[in-house]
Design a protein around this nucleic acid. Structure first.
Lengths: 102, 102
DNA sequence: CGGATCATTAACCATTTGGTTAACAGTAGC
DNA sequence: GCTACTGTTAACCAAATGGTTAATGATCCG
């Protein structure tokens, strides 16, 4: 299991899948067509994204409908924003420090 | 070289370093004390963060002053927000679809 | 100079990652 | 039932990742 959104998004193909799904749900085969790798490779990437909670899967007969579930992305984005915000308050002090050393 | 903010943040220690630096600059030794790994390990993590542009380094004699440079984090957060926003517009349609299949 | 200190680099190792092809499982349709 | 189709699992492999200890570089200070 993965369960780490940053790790899940650390591979360009997985980010590509997210972008693809932001345009609407798709089957595994449809997703595969957009990238230059085999279907098993995509299947593994989808598994990582699913375990992390970035996507959902509804099985319909023999096809799987994959859809984005962006709540986890939100959490990760909030983490980044939080770091930036804390830093922002610190900025003037450090800027002063760097100028002083120049 | 790395140059991929998501990859740079895919390791918990590197995120820990960012959190540490959000509280103000620090030396390599100071950062090392906060995590249960050796100094060479931290040195490598810092190299990754520096190549990605998440931190800066000012050498002062024999100590290095490491500081956060959050612009890159902003870009990554914006990517996430963008995916969420596109999805948001799509949400009603897909929600309807899922209900219909239930 | 010589020793102590701060940090990086080198060499090495185990594990994880990301890909492949081939085999398997389930469903659809004739 | 048989065949085609969609997707996952198995087995394997090369490369990348993340850690270690030991060696090296560079600076400070007595």
């Amino acid at each position: 299991m993965v369960n780490d959104p940053f790790k899940a998004l650390s591979h360009p193909i997985r980010r590509g899948i997210v972008e693809r799904l932001a345009g609407g749900p798709a089957s595994v085969g449809e997703v595969t067509r957009d990238f230059g790798v085999s279907k098993p490779a995509i299947s593994k990437h989808l598994k990582v994204l699913e375990e992390t909670g970035v996507i959902t899967r509804v099985v319909e007969g023999r096809t799987h409908r994959i859809a984005l579930k962006p709540e986890v992305l939100d959490e990760a984005a909030e983490w980044m924003e939080r770091q930036r915000a804390i830093w922002e308050r610190m900025f003037d002090v450090v800027d002063e420090y760097l100028k002083e050393k120049r």
